[in-house]
């Protein structure tokens, strides 16, 4: 079994040594799970998707930057508005930081915004990848987690952790402007497929965080009236804040049986995804189903970058052979 085939088998976490060896040596199985090399393809696609999601979302904010983040805006004049209870743990630290800083000025906010836009563009294409990714994360944390957590829907907060995991992997070393510049400098071809790997643990963290999202949202609904009654998708499409299309209620009425069926399917699959995604074959079907669900949600609802974020994470559960075949067809893909 070559290095790449071993890595492919380990993408979903099965030890290539087989079940008996895993049970006899649990520490070895854990080491395998977290530290063995795995194909990096899904993280490269996630880099592009998440970088673009932030770039597009922040560009759309351009006319409203002063209103959302500025000192005369909705979040007020303090560097660190204290009204969001999630920050209570570090309140004394923030109080000290704020006392040490000059008053918040609109220029600071615009500077941070400009750096973020540049960093998001660079990160998506893999230019100065680690640095641009770190800058992107820092500016995003400042604007959305510190200045105004209510500027976006929750997907923006999900990206904090996901971006941090991505930065722990060499996502700039392959299929990136950095890689292209390196090849130009050395004259070497793109690395062979066997080299397109990363240590597993950043991928594992992305996979686990995707699972916890479905786990939390799925099990929160187990006593939810709308989900138990099959109403949830009807609610999503009828709600004109999130529903993309101005469906007449009569049309939604006729579509009720289909919407109820899809509601119940989602009601079952989402909470179980935390386990299903890790199983061979079943995991692939589950990932494909969830990706399809998010594509459908993007077509019919407006929820910001949620669907791009989750699709980026679900790519980490697709078979490596599929992603490898895709990358072999792309410019800058593996050479063999």
């Amino acid at each position: 079994m070559g290095a790449h085939d071993r890595a492919a088998a380990q993408t979903r976490g099965r030890s290539s040594l087989g079940g008996l060896s895993a049970r006899a040596e649990p520490l070895g199985a854990l080491r395998d799970f977290f530290f063995a090399p795995v194909p990096i393809y899904p993280l490269l696609l996630a880099r592009v998707l998440w970088g673009l999601a932030l770039l597009v979302a922040y560009l759309a904010l351009l006319p409203d930057v002063p209103a959302l983040f500025g000192p005369a805006g909705l979040a007020g004049a303090e560097w660190l508005p204290p009204q969001f209870h999630g920050w209570r743990l570090l309140t004394p630290v923030y109080a000290w930081v704020e006392s040490a800083l000059p008053p918040l000025a609109l220029a600071h906010v615009w500077t941070c915004y400009a750096i973020l836009i540049a960093a998001a563009a660079c990160f998506s294409v893999g230019f100065w990848t680690r640095s641009s990714g770190a800058l992107l994360l820092a500016c995003h944390l400042f604007l959305v987690q510190v200045r105004n957590p209510l500027a976006f829907w929750g997907w923006a907060a999900m990206l904090d952790g996901l971006l941090a995991y991505l930065l722990c992997a060499p996502v700039g070393r392959f299929w990136s402007v950095d890689a292209w510049l390196e090849r130009r400098r050395t004259g070497a071809p793109p690395p062979p497929a066997a080299a397109w790997t990363t240590v597993a643990w950043p991928l594992r963290l992305v996979q686990v965080n995707v699972c916890t999202m479905y786990y939390l949202s799925g099990f929160t609904r187990i006593d939810d009236h709308g989900w138990l009654d099959g109403q949830a998708l009807y609610q999503a499409l009828a709600h004109r804040l999130h529903g993309r299309w101005p469906f007449e209620l009569a049309l939604l009425e006729r579509a009720k049986p289909l919407l109820a069926l899809l509601t119940y399917a989602t009601f079952v699959v989402e909470p179980l995804a935390i386990a299903l995604l890790w199983l061979p074959r079943v995991g692939t079907s589950c990932a494909v189903w969830l990706i399809g669900m998010h594509v459908g949600l993007e077509l019919f609802t407006e929820v910001g970058g949620w669907n791009l974020v989750m699709i980026g994470g679900l790519l980490c559960f697709l078979p490596t052979t599929w992603l490898a075949a895709l990358f072999r067809r792309l410019p800058g893909g593996p050479s063999a």
Partner: peptide, 20 residues
């Protein structure tokens, strides 16, 4: 800044009145 997940698409009430 780490978020394990969000409870999305939950019903606002236990009645059959859904937000339009």
């Amino acid at each position: 800044g780490i978020v394990p997940g969000h409870a999305v698409f939950t019903s606002p009430s236990a009645s059959d009145d859904v937000p339009r």
